[in-house]
Computed example of a mutant assay.
Amino acid sequence: MFDTMTLTKLASGLLGAWLVLLLGKWVGEEVYHAEAHGEQSYAIEIEGAEEEEPEEELDFAALMDVADPASGERVFRKCSACHKIAAGENNVGPYLHGVVGRQIAAVDGFNYSGALADIDAAWTPDELSAFLENPKGYAPGTTMGFAGLKKPEERADLIAYLDTLDD
């Protein structure tokens, strides 16, 4: 029923049709590409439309003044899968006892990624907030797989809690 020549013709027809489809898609994208060509020449004014006001910048120091360490302890549950509080007890991540004010990548016996080891700074509340908001953005190449805490209030509460851990 099927010999080698029939299978070759069938495969050639399918692959040829697929190639035509891909080439057609490529040509269509080149012709009808949605990218703007240069600057917008004019803007259409809409009556009654108001300009959006920019959001207020949150002062992180003011958030730290009203931060609740008890709420931060609840937020720490997200961190507890990889970090321990007790001094000297590293887990997947380094221990967090005394982290506020400690030099970045300063825990003995923990193998930090090069992204953090190259930073010469201390974990101030502002540095911790920037790191906790987006670890991959703060230190590109870090091995920390946490997505981050987007709410500044949660970050402030967590940092206040971590600050209460050391004497």
Rank of each mutant, 00 (worst) to 15 (best):
L10W: 09
L63Y: 11
Q103H: 13
K84L: 03
N90V: 12
V75T: 08
G16Q: 07
P54L: 00
H37E: 09
K151P: 08
A34H: 03
Y161G: 12
H37L: 15
G137Q: 11
N91T: 02
E29C: 00
G24D: 06
G13L: 11
L165Y: 13
E39Q: 01
E53P: 01
Y112M: 03
A147Q: 11
E39Y: 03
E154I: 00
L132M: 12
N111A: 15
E47W: 03
T6L: 12
M5Q: 11
A87V: 14
A34R: 06
I46R: 12
G148H: 02
G141A: 04
G93V: 03
W18S: 07
Y32I: 01
T142C: 06
A62E: 14
K151Q: 13
F60D: 00
G101V: 07
G28V: 07
Y138N: 04
L23N: 07
E29Q: 08
L23M: 10
A121S: 09
A130T: 11
S80R: 05
Y112K: 04
T8W: 14
D157L: 01
D163N: 15
T164F: 09
A160C: 15
L21R: 12
E89L: 11
F131L: 06
V75F: 06
M64K: 09
A70W: 06
D120C: 08
N111W: 08
L96R: 05
E50R: 09
F60Q: 01
E53T: 11
G72N: 05
F60K: 00
D166L: 15
E52L: 05
S129P: 06
I44F: 03
G145V: 06
A106W: 09
D157R: 01
L14Y: 08
E55G: 00
K25I: 09
D120V: 11
V92R: 05
A17L: 12
E73T: 02
E30Q: 05
K78D: 06
A121V: 02
N91R: 11
A156D: 04
A147Y: 06
V100F: 12
Y95H: 07
I85Q: 13
L96K: 07
W18C: 07
H37S: 08
E89H: 14
G141V: 02
P69K: 07
Y161Q: 04
D126Q: 15
E50N: 08
L116H: 11
P152M: 12
A49H: 02
H97Q: 10
P69F: 03
I119W: 06
A43R: 09
L96D: 04
K84A: 02
